[in-house]
Design a protein around this nucleic acid. Structure first.
Length: 585
RNA sequence: GUCCCCGUAGCUUAACGGAUAAAGUACUGGGCUUCGGACCCAGCGAUGAGGGUUCGAUUCCUUCCGGGGACACCA
């Protein structure tokens, strides 16, 4: 990345100044660069003179001028300017920008790709069985998948894990409902028939029913806990019903993942750790970290840094914390990652802080880095959606509506006349699903999202369809040109680059940086806004100049190369976001 | 009660302590008898309130107001 080269040059300039005696010694600290919003301020700017000047008591403006004076020449730079109170502004040369355009055409989907950078575990999606796949699970699934894609692209060995909630008290609730309501007074044969034909909708209804009943009869909560205890103790009847509900749920998840075009490397549910928790408890006891309190076994943290976590409930049943500790021990040992990323809802924030800290205390983790990437909730305009009250918005309905709306626009467009029915179906699906995913990913994960059908199904403006449309438009132009594969050689002979072309060129080369930043900050939204600005810049260019009927052949070739590179970058961004780029739409 | 997160144009969102706070949407006006109008251009319009640190604060500290979440037998 060019920014690293730039940093070296600034360091060299500082060193030169130190030699002159202007500085005491060459300071080797991190130098921050940014892309100024105003293009008059160049492609990169650095505030090093402002920061340094303050520190050593020198006028920042003079210091900046000194740096500019001794700045080593470089081919990739056109010039260096000093501005304002002491900003250093760097302008990239056209040669560099054109060269980078050539790199994009050459490397295609590998442009900016890294290699051999360690191992990362990413846990995401993790829906609960016996509950429908609600709109809330959409977030974890697609944000997690985007983070997975980002790290993989950067060259990390990625292990994606789906950790479904197939264990714990909620299953006691379901067991109670199935057993004491659904199967009550039924013959063995009838029971089998009912279980065989369980549907996800039925399970959802039962779950909601339980909470309705429990509202008027709080004793049911205790009954549910007992049912879970039975399951944990290996009760045959409980096991059987649980297996059925699990099967129904997993079938449902698979269907949804196919719809979303998501696949996760490993699915390891909570129940997998069922027989690995005694060990965890012993580990904590050995280290003197477990104490008894009110009949339960808890872990207190030094200096009460975090509130205590519970290993065993007073009835001896394990908790989510116990399972997550077993989980952490298992995955650290099995995969030896350098980074563990867990994507869940924000309400689990404390829990994972406890898990991370406890992992170090108990000796499971040493140098591994942990990150809890948490997403806000989808809220209705009135407040929170509650699964318990059955207010869940079903993902499938959203996708269905999104497709229908995409289809409507497609049918009214000129371009679609030549499309077959199959093509139309396919395009509507790619566009509709893309829109829903993008709507989520384009926001920073941590914030809540106000659920709004109109916004969710918006296919204009800052949206996936806008990017897809721009891509399809580029592809259409390329199809019509007689230059099948524009390449670096077509960039020769272009002397004048106009403002709109420049606007695109000055964005494209940033793609590798954007991916790096987005991964480091776990912010897929940075990829979205970058892709959007590329598409905007290209559309402005498109509306101002002709590509195929350009003034000269050289210019036409250059513009085709620009078109090709734009399409490539948009496609690469969409790929990272888990969204498809249709050739036509 | 304690801790954490959030408060930015009418609405939905951006902004690693930097330069005139950036977009989308809505609204108003305009563009191309099209290489794809799911497009482009212009206008309108915002940092909850008060202190502090800083050359510089949406960003850091603090008080208040407002919203959300967590805080032992849910996950």
């Amino acid at each position: 990345m060019i920014v690293k080269e730039l940093e070296k040059l600034v360091q060299a300039a500082l060193f030169a100044l130190a030699k002159e005696g202007v500085l005491d010694a060459a300071p080797v600290e991190h130098i921050a660069f940014e892309h100024p919003e105003d293009k008059k301020h160049g492609d990169y700017s650095a505030n090093i003179a402002l920061v340094l000047g303050e520190k050593i008591g020198k006028n920042p403006r003079e210091l900046a001028e000194g740096i500019a004076r001794v700045f080593p020449p470089a081919e990739f730079l056109e010039r260096v300017e000093v501005a304002g109170p002491g900003f250093l502004n760097f302008f990239l040369s056209r040669a560099y920008l054109a060269n980078e355009l050539g790199e994009i055409l050459k490397k295609k989907e590998k442009y900016g790709k890294g290699e051999c950078r360690g191992k990362v575990i990413i846990e995401y999606s993790s829906p609960n069985i016996a509950k429908p796949f609600g709109i809330g699970h959409l977030r974890s699934t697609i944000i997690g998948q985007a983070i997975y894609n980002l790290y993989k692209f950067l060259g990390y060995a990625c292990v994606g894990i789906n950790y479904p909630g197939d264990w714990g008290t909620p299953h006691g609730k379901i067991l109670y409902e199935v057993h004491e309501v659904l199967l009550k007074d039924k013959s063995a044969e009838e029971k089998k028939d009912i279980l065989e034909n369980l549907s996800i909708e039925e399970l959802e209804r039962l779950y909601v029913q339980f909470h309705k009943d429990a509202a008027s009869n709080p004793a049911l909560e205790e009954v549910a806990r007992n049912w879970f205890k039975k399951l944990e103790d290996g009760d045959k009847e409980a096991r059987m019903v649980w297996e059925y509900t699990k099967r129904v749920s997993f079938r449902e998840f698979e269907r949804i993942y196919r719809l979303l075009d998501v696949s996760i490397d490993h699915t390891i549910g909570e129940s997998f750790f069922e027989d690995k928790m005694d060990e965890v408890i012993r580990d904590f006891q050995k280290r003197g970290l477990a104490t008894e309190s009110r009949g339960a076994l808890i872990v207190s943290f030094p200096n009460e840094e975090l509130s205590p976590a519970m290993l065993l409930k007073s009835d001896g049943a394990t908790t989510y914390f116990t399972r997550d500790m077993a989980n952490m021990k298992y995955r650290l040992k099995r995969w030896k990652p350098s980074l563990v990323v867990i994507e869940t809802g924000v309400e689990q924030n404390l829990h994972f802080q406890q898990v991370f800290l406890a992992s170090r205390l108990v000796g499971y983790a040493k140098d591994e880095q942990f990150a809890h990437v948490y997403h806000g909730l989808y809220r209705s305009k009135e407040g929170k959606f509650s699964t318990r009250k059955g207010e869940t918005i079903h993902l499938e309905d959203v996708l269905h509506d999104a497709k229908a709306r995409a289809r409507e626009i497609l049918d009214s467009s000129e371009a679609s006349r030549e499309f077959s029915e199959n093509e139309k179906q396919e395009i509507a699906g790619v566009v509709g699903i893309g829109a829903v995913k993008y709507n989520d990913l384009s926001q920073h994960p941590s914030g809540d999202i106000v659920f709004d059908w109109d916004k969710m199904l918006n296919l204009r403006g800052n949206s996936a369809p806008y990017l897809q449309y721009t891509y399809a438009r580029c592809q259409s132009i390329l199809r019509k040109s007689n230059l099948a594969g524009p390449s670096y050689s077509h960039l020769n002979g272009v002397k004048d680059v106009n403002e709109e072309e420049m606007g695109v060129l000055r964005l494209l080369y940033r793609f590798p940086e954007v991916v790096e930043d987005a991964a480091r900050r776990f912010s897929p939204n940075m990829v979205c806004s970058f892709a959007f600005s590329v598409a905007q810049a290209y559309n402005l260019f498109y509306n101002t100049h002709r590509v195929l009927e350009a003034e000269t052949k050289e210019i036409a070739n250059f513009r085709l190369a620009l078109t090709k590179a734009t399409a490539q970058i948009i496609k690469n961004c969409l790929f990272l976001l888990g969204i498809q780029a249709p050739e036509k739409m």
